[in-house]
Simulated assay, not measured.
Amino acid sequence: MRAPLALAATCVAVSAALALSACGGSKKSDDKIKDQGTDVSTSAPAPTTTSAAPSPTAPGVKRPVITLPSDAKDVFEDEHTGDPVKDAVLADNAGYVLATDEGIFKGKTTENLGFYATEKGLANAITYVQGVHAKGLVWTGTVRFFDRKVTMEGTGDASVVYCSDESKAFPKHVKTGKVDNVATTSESYVLYSTHAKKNAQGVWQTTDIVSDRGSKQCQP
Rank of each mutant, 00 (worst) to 15 (best):
A3N: 10
K28I: 15
A200E: 10
S186T: 14
G114W: 11
M1F: 10
V61K: 12
W204T: 04
D74R: 05
W204Y: 10
K216Q: 15
G131R: 01
D208Q: 12
V161K: 14
D165F: 03
T194L: 01
A46N: 15
D208E: 08
V97Q: 12
K120I: 01
H195F: 06
R213M: 05
S159Q: 14
P59V: 03
Y96A: 06
Y192N: 09
D35M: 01
L7S: 13
P45R: 09
T50L: 12
F115V: 04
S193T: 14
N112R: 15
T42L: 07
S70W: 07
H133R: 15
D101Y: 00
Q36C: 00
A16T: 08
D71Q: 10
K62N: 05
A99V: 11
K178C: 01
A52T: 13
E153D: 14
V203F: 04
G103E: 07
Y116W: 14
T42H: 10
C23D: 07
Y192P: 04
V179G: 07
S186K: 15
T67Q: 10
V129F: 04
R2H: 00
G103M: 03
W204D: 07
G103Q: 11
L113N: 05
G177Y: 12
V160A: 06
A123V: 12
G103P: 11
F105V: 05
S188D: 04
D165E: 07
T127E: 13
T184Q: 13
T109Y: 00
V174Q: 11
D208G: 06
S167K: 11
F105H: 15
N181A: 05
D157L: 00
P84W: 00
A88G: 08
S43W: 04
H195P: 02
W204P: 01
P54L: 13
D157Q: 06
A158L: 02
